[in-house]
Each structure stands twice: as structure tokens, then as C-alpha cells.
Amino acid sequence: MPLSQQLELDPDPSAARTARAWVIELLARLGRDDLAESAELGVSELVTNALLHAEPPVRLRLRGTRDHPRIEVLDCSSSLPASAGATGGEDQLGNGGRGLDLVALFSRAWGSVVDSTGKLVWFEPTSAEPDGEPVVGHHVVNEDTFATEPEVAGERIAVRLLNFPVQEWAHFRAMYTELRRELRLLAITHPDDYPLATELTELARTVDGHRLHSTGHAKLEAAIEAGQTTADLTYEVPVTSVHDMPRLAGLLREAVRFCHEQNLLASAPLEEHVELVVWYADQFVQQAAGREASPWRGAARSA
């Protein structure tokens, strides 16, 4: 089975045992049996608490890299996790005050990501003996800006996106969101080992920030929701953002290279994603220069 797959867990007493066996098998395939003991302990705690206290479905994934594997438990709750050390009393996850403090004790790093889709709690198992000091968690809260239409000041231009493949874009965006999160977690936990992750994270933050100062996205969201295949869209964007758009295509190509060179366990962006983003960025540049919009004609297919 591919390492990038995930396991959905049923809410029954055997779930933690199933999760342990699944993670141990994947770690063995990575040649990281040295992490088995701490991985078993951590995944048991996180899965048990997610099934008891979070909103289903509960899913389990292995992410990170071959050198720094990361175990993730996802659910649909938006509540931040809390440990006994954070609250000064029994932890909010139950288990008699153990919970995340125990996970933190047997991890080299751990944390959570909360966004509009729910919560992801993660940890990197360690082969080192615990020294009695739990590591401090890294917690990130994302703001979902996909549906916002902000008040925009300053000079703007209209960019038409003809025959825009809305469902393909939705698929790309889901992949891009996960890739950004993956790069950000590597930049947080291992900046010296993965300097490119830090660089790509900063570039993505700059490029994505332009969306907050643009209008026209509501029609795209409505088309995705309605199941439309294509739509003609018009965005109004700040003039200053136009020439940063090609950096998005460059970012994606760099991310593909990073995924392969660093043995990233998440799936790499597909070539058709790259082609779509290149066309998208070109529309901003060519229309800012006064040329007509070019409709999307589909990604090239290899014979």
C-alpha cells in the first residue's frame, strides 16, 4: 500500500489496536523500527481520545519524510487540544491526566493544526529515552479565506479566466492546502534540515496573501458547490500583485522537486496541476499587459 494513504477508524474498542498495527507496518517499510515503541504509545493515546471526544470521522495518516516521519490523527472537531501541563490539572483529553503530556514525553515534536474542516493532532515518535521533560507543542490555527470578498482599496485590474476548470481547481487546491501545511510543519520542526521548506512556506504566504486583496472568488466557490465543470470568472486584483503570480507556478515546481528529493511521504503535485497553475498565472501577466484572455484548453496528456 502507498505510504501516502490514510486509515479511517471505526468507533469500536479495536480501533486503537488497528491503528497501532497500521502505523507499525508503515514504519517497518520505512526501515524505522526504532520508532515502534513510542509510535505505538502515541497513536494509542491520540486515537483513543479522538474517538472518545472528537467528531467523526477519525482518520490516521503517516506524513513527514523518511528521516522524520510524523503520525497524524484527524477529526472534525475544531477544539484545540490541551494537556495537563497546559491547564494545570487533569487534561481535557481524559485518560486520567496522561493524554498529550504522555505523547509529548515520547515525541521529538508534536502539535496541532485547526482549520474550518476540523483538527489534526500530530507527533514525531522518537527512539530516545524520555528525560522527564515533555516537549512543547506547536499549535497552528488557519483562517479559511476561500469564501471571503474583502473591501479592496487601491488600483486594480480585471482578470478574466475563461473556461476555468473549477473541479480540477478544487482538486488542486485540496492538494495545495495539504502541501502548504506539510511544508509549514517541516519548517517549524526541522528548519535546519529542510531550509527549502522554510523558503517555500514564506513564498506561499506572500502569494496566497494576494487573495485577501482580490475579489471575484465567490462565483468560483458557487460553481464548485454546484458541481459545474467549468465557469467563466472575473477577478479584480491589485496591480501590484500581478507580477507575483508567476511565483506560484515556480513555487509548485520547486515543491515537486522537494517532494522527490526529500522523500516526502505526502503525494507530490501532479504535472497537470503545474500546467493549470502556469496557465492561471499567465492570464494575470498577459492581461495586465493589455492582451486578451486565453481560455483553458486542458492539460497536455502524454501518449
Rank of each mutant, 00 (worst) to 15 (best):
E8T: 13
E45S: 08
L7I: 06
H53P: 08
A19Y: 04
V23Q: 01
L9V: 04
L35M: 03
V43M: 02
S44M: 09
E8P: 10
V47T: 03
A50K: 02
R29S: 11
A54F: 08
L7S: 07
L51D: 04
V47W: 00
N49T: 10
A39I: 00
E45L: 07
S44N: 12
T48D: 11
S4V: 11
L3S: 11
L52F: 15
A15F: 06
D34C: 00
S4F: 13
H53V: 08
I24R: 09
E37M: 11
S14G: 13
D34W: 00
H53K: 13
R17I: 14
R17W: 14
A39V: 00
T48C: 10
L27V: 00
E40C: 09
I24N: 08
D10C: 15
E37Y: 12
A19W: 01
E40F: 07
V47Y: 01
R17N: 15
A39Y: 00
L26W: 07
L7P: 07
D34R: 00
T18N: 14
W22G: 03
E25N: 14
A36M: 09
A28W: 09
Q6I: 12
V23W: 01
A19V: 02
G31M: 03
L41T: 06
Q6C: 15
P11M: 07
L51N: 04
P13R: 05
V23I: 05
L35T: 01
E37R: 13
S14T: 13
V47N: 01
A15S: 08
E55G: 09
G31W: 02
A15D: 06
A28L: 11
S38Q: 05
L30M: 03
Q6A: 14
S38T: 04
A28P: 08
Q6W: 14
A50R: 05
E55T: 14
L27S: 02
S38D: 03
T48V: 09
E55L: 10
E37P: 08
G31D: 05
T18F: 14
T18H: 14
L3F: 10
W22M: 02
L51V: 05
Q5T: 15
R17G: 14
L51C: 04
V47K: 03
A16V: 08
R29F: 11
E37G: 12
R32Y: 03
A15M: 04
T18Y: 13
G31R: 01
L27T: 00
E8S: 12
W22T: 03
A39M: 01
H53C: 09
R29T: 11
